[in-house]
């Protein structure tokens, strides 16, 4: 039996695999965005964007990034 990890079922096409890896990369970067040492650089109040403090806009941006990345992944799935 294989001792490594097996992420895809047999027959998953190369483009489908690539898309998933791209998503995982985006997701990992977004997660990093919300933690030390990146978030502290964007954790302040100024500038207010659309009236909201920068630290809040940063989290909302993370939510939107994951949303659009997932949407892209979903629209590319085999029907």
């Amino acid at each position: 039996m294989r001792s490594g990890l097996s992420f895809f079922k047999p027959g998953t096409s190369a483009p489908a695999r690539r898309r998933r890896w791209i998503f995982v990369a985006i997701w990992t970067m977004t997660a990093a965005m919300l933690m030390w040492p990146i978030y502290p650089r964007f954790a302040g109040i100024e500038p207010l964007i659309l009236g909201l403090p920068l630290g809040l806009v940063w989290v909302i941006a993370a939510i939107l990034i994951v949303f659009f990345a997932l949407l892209w992944l979903y629209l590319g799935e085999d029907r």
């Binding site: 919300l34 954790a43 403090p53 630290g55 993370a62 939510i63 994951v66 992944l73 979903y74």
Partner: peptide
């Protein structure tokens, strides 16, 4: 701002469920 934590974990927490 500690309340942003609630938004932060939700932002990434649901994706594995996909």
């Amino acid at each position: 701002a500690s309340a942003f934590y609630i938004l932060a974990y939700g932002a990434i927490g649901m994706a594995p469920f996909y």
